[in-house]
Design a protein around this nucleic acid. Sequence first.
DNA 1: ATATGTGCAAACTCTTTGCATGGAG
DNA 2: CTCCATGCAAAGAGTTTGCACATAT
Lengths: 122, 122
Amino acid sequence: MQRDTRQRRAIRRVFMDTGRPLTPDEVLVMGQQQVHSLGLATVYRNIKILHEEGWLAEVELPGGGTRYELAERPHHHHFLCRECDQAYDVHNCPDQVEELAPPGFTVDGHELILFGLCAACS
Amino acid sequence: MQRDTRQRRAIRRVFMDTGRPLTPDEVLVMGQQQVHSLGLATVYRNIKILHEEGWLAEVELPGGGTRYELAERPHHHHFLCRECDQAYDVHNCPDQVEELAPPGFTVDGHELILFGLCAACS
DNA sequence: ATATGTGCAAACTCTTTGCATGGAG
DNA sequence: CTCCATGCAAAGAGTTTGCACATAT
């Protein structure tokens, strides 16, 4: 059974207020602004729970550890800026991606990552 | 100046003979079939050198460490099997991916990963 | 009152580095 | 004979776990 602790509430709020994929360490720093005593292990444990619940989705981008973002959002992809290393959402999706797989392969999901310079760094 | 050691030759051969993205640990196991004394640090050191030389390309896929594959090959993408966790090449590519980015963003590269079951695991 | 959650520190995994020895040139 | 490369073991990063205490219910 789930308890509603200050730490868990702070971690959830960080994700809801931020709207882009975050590393555990980013969550720690941002969460400590609400709960100063917040520890890294607590962040990892809660991210794990929230991910298992389906509240968070894993985002794996090159260069660095796994990031997480809110799960229950429309299908989208990511843009990774080579300059500032921030991840942005991309709300368009190429069609008929499933047909790109070799014969005999069953596709049940896909991830597309665009690289380049974001609007701010261009 | 580069020396031509048994270890380095074995590591290069593993990549040339395999043709799919490999983790350092996979390279170790396969390379030890040629050079029994091969150590993991040597694998990491040589992968680093071969990557800096542009002979290997990094492939970052969810679930596990960075994989590597031969660099000088035609543009392609990857399929990750959820069952056996092996990465396969996908030689098709969706068109006009650059146009998916938000206005003001400059795209200079992209990566597409398909998930599902490979032919062997279906 | 009870049992889950937290914080700390130790353990673990993956990767890198220091050092003495080995071997390519 | 010189140095670069190797193997081992120790050191670093990122992540997970054990334990005693705190706290939501």
